[in-house]
């Protein structure tokens, strides 16, 4: 009798089978992989439209086999709103970085969350502007050195880091808000579980959903990939705690 072979890991159909441009140790690739897996598992490939940001993931649309659009810096939630309203049965997600969502696009994300329409945002928080060379972001930690806070961020000069997930969870519109981390296999599994809930919140028409992913930027942090993962656990998580901040009834 021939031995039965079971596929336990493969390239998602939603993945365009391309090599990404991301730096070694960057977690964008992990977040991308999770999106592709979930789109496959939830049977969404034919009805998905991805809205990509300005930032390191500006070319994100190159890596997926579903429809995509490229937004202006910070405007992905507005563009996603325009796409969703024309075809409410489609699955629309925006992918945003921290400068994109919490600085230039703060108005767009707050009002998309407040409207509560079922769109999903995957938010990559790596504490700096990666693509432009590591400048200070709204999520840069106090004391953290960046190219525009060379002596370390101080609250007197630069104010305090913004906790996007907690802030948006105060609104009545969102159905699901969570912060996850992509630093370890265990946390990546939890991240996928949170993203599945976020996707479901849209598919089931419950409301707006957002998953903030604590991410790495080894190149601009001047750390190795391993050191970057360590930094997420030791320095980033204490200020940006993991957890679910809003779970509306029906989200599973």
């Amino acid at each position: 009798m021939a031995e039965q072979m079971n596929v336990i890991y493969e390239r998602p159909r939603s993945w365009a089978n391309k090599v990404t441009h991301y730096c070694p140790g960057c977690t964008h690739g992990i977040a991308h992989r999770l999106i592709a897996e979930l789109v496959d598992e939830m049977g969404l490939l034919d009805k998905t439209i991805g809205v990509w940001p300005v930032g390191c993931s500006v070319l994100g649309y190159e890596y997926f086999s579903f429809d995509s659009v490229e937004a202006a810096h910070g405007r992905a939630p507005a563009m996603a709103t325009g796409i969703k309203v024309t075809n409410p049965d489609n699955f629309v997600f925006a992918y945003q970085g921290d400068g994109d969502i919490a600085s230039i696009g703060m108005a767009e994300i707050v009002h998309a969350a407040a409207r509560g329409w079922p769109i999903t945002v995957i938010f990559i928080n790596n504490g700096n502007y990666g693509m432009t060379g590591g400048q200070m972001a709204p999520t840069t930690l106090l004391g953290q050195k960046t190219t525009t806070s060379p002596l370390g961020r101080t609250s007197q000069t630069n104010g305090f880091p913004i906790r996007v997930a907690e802030m948006l969870a105060q609104l009545d519109g969102p159905a699901y808000i969570a912060r996850v981390s992509l630093d370890s296999p265990a946390n990546i599994r939890k991240a996928k579980s949170a993203m599945r809930k976020a996707f479901n919140a849209q598919v089931r028409g419950i409301g707006f959903s957002l998953v903030e992913c604590l991410s790495t930027c080894p190149t601009n942090w001047r750390l190795t990939p391993v050191e970057s993962m360590e930094r997420v656990r030791k320095e980033v998580m204490p200020y940006f705690p993991l957890g679910e901040f809003k779970v509306a009834p029906g989200v599973l």
Binding site: V69, A78, A80, G82, V85, N87, A107
Partner: peptide
């Protein structure tokens, strides 16, 4: 009703893509 003209035109952009 958008939150700003910046958002309006980007919602238009999204719908135009459809």
């Amino acid at each position: 009703q958008a939150e700003s003209e910046v958002a309006s035109i980007n919602m238009v952009y999204g719908a135009a893509c459809a």
